[in-house]
Design a protein around this nucleic acid. Structure first.
Lengths: 347, 347
DNA sequence: GCCATCTATGCACACGTTTGGTAAGCGACC
DNA sequence: GGTCGCTTACCAAACGTGTGCATAGATGGC
C-alpha cells in the first residue's frame, strides 16, 4: 500500500508515456480520446483502484454534488421516514448527503449553516422546524439553494422554497371527525418544543371548534416542560397531561394530540390510571403523523397521516430543480385522516 | 452579492496592502502575526462572512474531519438512537458526517465505499449488519480507519475495529428469565433480513434451552419473506407468525422475538385474533433492543436493553482514537434484561 | 509539394488553502 | 559599521482535477 491515494498522474505513469490530461479525458469519456485508449485507461484505472478526489473536483468548480441535510432530532420517527424518501432520490443521482443535527438552539443553527457552507454544499434540505429569523436571513444571504420542509415562507425567493404539510387542515380533519362522532368537549394537547407545527395544528383545531360553536379556552393545553424535541419527551408529555383533560372543570371526551408519540403517551396513561380509562369507549384520542407503530398500538390509533416518504421524495426533487435553475413551486400537501380504533362516539 | 464566495484574497484586498498569506496565518492564530493585526483581520473576515473552503483545506492535506456513516436502514429505531450518541461526540469535535444508506445489496455496499473514498473521509462508522466478505476485504484494502458496529471480526487489524452488543448473552438472559418463571415451551422468532444478529440471538437462545434440557427444533422459526430490513417489515413478521407458535404441535407458552418490532407485531396479532390471546397470562413475550416505544406498548414489553446511545458514543470515541493512532480495543457490551409486564408464569 | 483540415495529445493555468523558505526592517552588540 | 537576532510580511510551491489553447502528426485536396 502506497502512502497516498491513486491519482491521475499515477495512472498516467503506469500506462506509460501518456500525460495525466489524457487520463482525465479518457475517464470522463471525452470524444477527444480514441476508443481503444479510452477503454485501456479505464481498465487500468479500475485495476489500480482509482477513486476520483471529490475535493479536488469540487475545488475545480464542478458542481459539488453534495447536499446538506439539517434535521432537528434523529430520534423522531417522522424524520427517519422522511430521510428514506430523500435518500431514494439522491442515491441514483450520485448525490452525497452531509448530515447536520440541529441542537434546537439558535446558536447551533447558525453554526450548522457555517459548517455546510464550509463544505460548499450545492444545496440544503432542512427540516429544522424552529427556524428563527436569523436562520432564514442567513440562508437567503448566502444564496445556497434550499428547500424548507414543513415550514412556510412568504417571500418567494429564487433560491429558497418550501414544501409543507397542511397542518391546520389536518387538525381540522381530526376535529371534524370527532364532531361527526358526536363529541363537543374536544381537547388539544400541544408542545412547546416545536412551536411552529404545534401552533399551526392548534390554529386548525381552533378554527374547526369555533365554526362548530364549541370552543372553550381550557380545552387547550400546551405542554411546557419539554426542551428537547424527541420521541421520548413527547411520550412523557402525553403521560403527564392526561389528568388535566379528565379534570371535571375540563371534562374532555376526546383529545387531539400534537403527534402520535404524544397520543401513545396518553394511551399509556389511560391504562396506568388507578381507575383505568377505556379507549375509545370513555375517551377518544386522535394522533398526528401516522408513524409505523400507530397501527400497532392498543387500540390502533386514529391519526392524521402525513405522506412522509413522499414529502421527502418531493423535497429532494424540488432541490434538484433549484440546482438546475428550473422554476419551482412551493407545495402544500394535504394530509389524510386514517380512522382506526381509538375513536368512537361518546357515551 | 458577488458571484463567488469570499476567499482569503478578498479579505486581503479589503484590508489594504497585505497579502492573503498573512490573512491565512492571522485566521489560524499563527504566532507570526502581531496581536493587533490578527484581531483586525479576524474581525474583518467575520464582517465579510468568510467561511474557509473545506474542500481546499482537505485537498491541501489537512485532516478532512469528515467521516462516513453507513447505516442499513434509517427507519430502524435502533439506528436512530445510535446516531444520537454518535452525533453527540462528533459535533463538538467539529466533525462532519457524510451519510450513506446501504441498500442491502452487495453491489450497493461497494458503491458506498467508493463514494466515501471519493470524498476522502478520514474514517468510517458502519452499522451495516450484513457485512459481506467483499465488503470487509475492500475496507481493509483501502486502509481507512473504520469502526464496525454490531459486527465482530477475528483479525485485529490496526485500522479496523469493532464494538458489538453481546447478542448471544442477551438472548440467554431472555430465555433464563422465562425459565425462571416456569416456562419450558419457549419459542424463538427470527428474521432472514439480518442474518448476523438474528443468528447470534438464536445461538444464545439455543445454548440456554439446551442447557435447561428443553430444546425442541420446532420451537424455532426464522421468517422467510422480509427482504427489506425495516421496522414495518418486522412488525409484519410478528403478526404473520403468531399462529405458528400457538399451533398444537408447537404449543409455545412464551416467545423470544428477534427485536421489539417483531414483538410488537406479535402483541398486535394476539389482540386481533378471533379468540383473543391475553398477554402475559396466556402467552409471555420478550423483545430485544428496548426501543423507546417498548415501555408504552400494551402491555409494556419485557425486553433486552441495548445501550444504543452509549454504543454510538463509544463507537465514535473509538474512531477518534483510531484517527489519532492511539491503541484501541474491541468492545463487547453486555445487554440488560428489562422486566415489564409482557411476561408472567405460565398457567 | 504545399496548405487546409482534422484528430490526438500535451502544456499550463485555475480553483483556495497551508507552509517552508526568505526578504525587509529594526535594534543591539562586537 | 558590520553582523546577528528578532519580528513581520511575502513569494512560491503543493494538493488533484478539468479545460482552453497550442502543437504534432496524419490525411486529403489542389
Amino acid at each position: 500500500m502506497g502512502k497516498h491515494e491513486v491519482t491521475l498522474r499515477d495512472i498516467a505513469k503506469a500506462a506509460g508515456g501518456i500525460s495525466y490530461t489524457t487520463v482525465s479525458r479518457a475517464l470522463r469519456d471525452s470524444p477527444l480520446i480514441s476508443q481503444e485508449k479510452r477503454q485501456a485507461i479505464q481498465k487500468l484505472a479500475a485495476e489500480l483502484g482509482y477513486a476520483p478526489n471529490a475535493l479536488a473536483q469540487g475545488l475545480r468548480g464542478v458542481r459539488s454534488n453534495t447536499i446538506g441535510l439539517v434535521t432537528p432530532a434523529l430520534g423522531d420517527p417522522f424524520f427517519a421516514e422522511l430521510t428514506v424518501g430523500i435518500q431514494e432520490v439522491a442515491q441514483p443521482q450520485g448525490i452525497s448527503i452531509l448530515l447536520a443535527v440541529s441542537t434546537n438552539t439558535a446558536e447551533g443553527e447558525l453554526e450548522i449553516i457555517e459548517r455546510l457552507r464550509r463544505h460548499r454544499v450545492a444545496g440544503i434540505l432542512t427540516g429544522a422546524s424552529r427556524i428563527t429569523e436569523q436562520y432564514k436571513d442567513r440562508l437567503l444571504q448566502i444564496n445556497i439553494p434550499t428547500v424548507l420542509i414543513n415550514a412556510q415562507l412568504k417571500p418567494h425567493d429564487r433560491s429558497l422554497c418550501w414544501i409543507a404539510n397542511n397542518d391546520p387542515n389536518g387538525a381540522e380533519q381530526a376535529v371534524n371527525h370527532l364532531l361527526e362522532l358526536g363529541h363537543t368537549a374536544i381537547g388539544y394537547l400541544g408542545v412547546k418544543s416545536r412551536p411552529k407545527s404545534s401552533g399551526q395544528r392548534l390554529e386548525g383545531y381552533q378554527a374547526a371548534m369555533i365554526a362548530a360553536g364549541v370552543y372553550r379556552e381550557n380545552l387547550v393545553k400546551i405542554a411546557e416542560k419539554t426542551s428537547e424535541a424527541s420521541s421520548k419527551e413527547d411520550l412523557g408529555v402525553g403521560e403527564a397531561y392526561l389528568d388535566y383533560f379528565l379534570d371535571r372543570k375540563v371534562g374532555a371526551t376526546a383529545i387531539v394530540a400534537y403527534n402520535d408519540s404524544v397520543a401513545l403517551g396518553l394511551l399509556h396513561a389511560c391504562r396506568n390510571r388507578k381507575k383505568k380509562i377505556q379507549v375509545p369507549e370513555e375517551l377518544s384520542i386522535v394522533g398526528y403523523d401516522d408513524i409505523v407503530l400507530a397501527a400497532y398500538a392498543a387500540p390502533p390509533l386514529t391519526t392524521i397521516s402525513q405522506r412522509k416518504k413522499l414529502i421527502g421524495t418531493l423535497a429532494m426533487q424540488m432541490l434538484l430543480k433549484l440546482l438546475n435553475d428550473e422554476p419551482v413551486e412551493d407545495r402544500l400537501e394535504l394530509p389524510d385522516l386514517v380512522v382506526r380504533e381509538s375513536t368512537a362516539p361518546p357515551r
